[in-house]
């Protein structure tokens, strides 16, 4: 776990007077699960948005496998092997769950075949296999707008995994999910990602999830990385406990 997959160097981005990224330096190691924690507005989602081409930093650069991706479009970045999921699941709500996944599978081929059906055996079988691994087979034929929050989150992540990324960035994969199903969802998710050998960066507010599943934790505060290291070290840091976890517990 020593090879750097994604490297952010000197990233700066401000919205008006608010510094969403203030000289961010961060390397994501191949194979690791890196959790990003911090209060709302600290710049966590901004980092994901910059890494996936949705936002362009004012200064600094991001490299992926040694290649500069700063300023590239989301489409170009996806093709390099970086996928993302969203805080608010971005499903095609008039399609079934299986069609959502199949469309993501098909998008790897460029989707430009105008006459062959989407639900051809190759795409359908791969979609079904992925749904089975995510434990979503029972809702394969359910329209996406009829799902509960936990299923929507998993389906959203499954769509990203269907792209066969080497790096997956997840924005609050458990937010809005009932506490009773949270650990089971993350357990499922981590197993799928480990099997697929996907490196993962995830923004998370639940410290139990972070402690249990993250290899390293980056603590964001006012656009800066306030702490970075293994969970047992970072989550016991008095400053982190006071400034981040304390805030989370009272939020």
């Amino acid at each position: 776990m020593t090879e750097v997959l994604l490297q952010a160097t000197g990233l700066r981005l401000a919205f008006g007077g608010v510094k969403a990224a203030d000289n961010i330096d961060l390397g994501v190691m191949k194979g690791e699960f890196l959790a990003i924690i911090g209060p709302n507005g600290a710049g966590k989602t901004t980092f994901i948005n910059m890494s996936t081409g949705y936002l362009r930093p004012n200064a600094g650069e991001i490299t992926y496998e040694g290649r500069r991706i700063t300023g590239m479009s989301p489409r170009a970045i996806v093709k390099l092997g970086i996928a993302r999921s969203f805080q608010l699941p971005q499903l095609f709500i008039e399609h079934t769950v299986e069609q959502n996944i199949a469309l993501a599978v098909a998008s790897r081929d460029g989707i430009w075949s105008p006459l062959a059906p989407l639900m051809r055996p190759r795409y359908r079988d791969e979609a079904r296999d992925l749904l089975a691994r995510f434990g979503l087979s029972a809702i394969a034929d359910t329209r996406a707008d009829a799902l509960n929050e936990g299923a929507r989150k998993l389906a959203d992540i499954a769509m990203a995994v269907a792209l066969k990324p080497r790096l997956l960035l997840m924005d609050e994969p458990t937010s809005g999910v009932a506490a009773s199903e949270k650990m089971a969802i993350v357990e499922t998710l981590v197993n799928v990602l480990r099997d697929a050998k996907v490196t993962a960066v995830f923004v998370e507010h639940d410290m139990d999830v972070v402690e249990r599943f993250a290899d390293r934790v980056a603590v964001w505060s006012q656009g800066r990385i306030a702490a970075l290291g293994p969970p047992d070290q970072v989550l016991n840091d008095p400053a982190v406990l006071r400034d981040v976890i304390g805030i989370e517990r009272h939020a």
Partner: peptide
Amino acid sequence: LYLSSPMGEALAGIKTRETRLEFMGV
């Protein structure tokens, strides 16, 4: 045939989640 193809389904995707298409490389 077109509407049932990946291209046609992506067209329907523009109506509901255009952003997602871009993050799928479409």
